[in-house]
Design a protein around this nucleic acid. Structure first.
Lengths: 187, 187
DNA sequence: TTCGTATGAATGAACG
DNA sequence: CGTTCATTCATACGAA
């Protein structure tokens, strides 16, 4: 995704250039309303329409965008969840170990679930191939798209709804497209 | 610097062994190619076969699996749509509320419009035409969610569609909620 | 200044 | 497909 998104936060007419406020921060009234919705009303899952509405109302208390409201709810939910999860394994023996609130540096014992292909029918291999000994650096003299004479179209389940009916007819154009991005600078 | 470039991507030689980091992160070349396909080529709906092909090609730029490509396209499509959804919606009353969207000042948003899905189409005047079975005109008073103070602490998921789709209801109650925090004093 | 924490923002992954 | 979850990056701010 574009990663230049979080820079200019659209001042609605009042601009201060020097990187003073790059990042939105809720004004006290905004924060009060948001918290009121979340905690008092238990309003935690606003729909996009409701996000707009909230945002619209909050605009009278300061500059704000839809995505700010969106992220605010997302973050609050996520962090509440996270805290609960970390409280669960507090040693019941004795000493309180209040290590929550840290930025994930504390090694928690959350089991990593590499559930693969659970629902997404692309049924790939699922094998985590370790990186090769040396990293394949992006070389300028990248050879043309290597002939995939192998049967790469073999183990695909094709259960995706995207099945347009054809079975690889557009391979040529895709190949060309991929090749056209060998070393263009657009990152 | 107009880009903060989420570091974490591809430590340049040795990806972490299994266990430390599970989440795939596109390397810059991979990102470049993917974005090129999506934006420049307008390639948004890869078939499973094409996903494999793309993935195979991208493997020379770092570890990657089919599902990563799959998710990448899914997420980009979803978020672009979500953005459009949040930034439209001028109140039907006719307020002079404009410049909702804003992040596009210096953004390299070269999103080439092309065949959307099969759900909504845009008229020449910018109006949105539902292409499904029926219309739904008035979006004024629709008691969507019954939250007025107390019994809301259940598990309200407020999934916008109540059957016929189209959220946008709940204006009344939300407004009330917003108004109720006009001048209360709380933390 | 440096460090730690709180939090906005981004995005990969997954659910229904 | 739209929405939600999980994890991480980035940054503002206060304490040491």
């Amino acid at each position: 995704m574009e990663q230049q998104t979080q820079q200019q936060i659209e001042d609605g007419g009042n601009n201060q250039a020097a990187g003073t406020n790059n990042r939105w921060a809720p004004t006290p009234p905004q924060l009060r309303i948001l918290k009121g919705l979340y905690y008092d009303k238990g309003f935690k899952y606003p729909t996009p329409e409701q996000i707009q509405e909230i945002c619209l109302h909050l605009k009278q208390y300061g500059q704000i965008e839809d995505k700010n409201v969106f992220f605010w709810f997302q973050n609050l939910k996520a962090r509440e969840r996270q805290k609960l999860k970390e409280f669960r394994n507090v040693p019941v023996g004795g000493s309180l170990d209040l290590n929550f609130g840290s930025t994930g540096s504390t090694s928690t014992d959350r089991s990593i679930d590499l559930n693969f292909g659970s629902r997404v029918g692309y049924g790939a291999d699922g094998s985590i191939m370790e990186q090769r000994g040396e990293y394949h650096q992006e070389i300028e003299t990248l050879p043309l798209f290597p002939m995939h004479g192998e049967d790469i179209f073999g183990n695909m389940k094709t259960t995706s709804e995207g099945g347009s009916g054809y079975g690889g007819g557009s391979r040529i154009s895709l190949e060309l497209s991929l090749n056209s991005y060998r070393d263009t600078d657009m990152a």
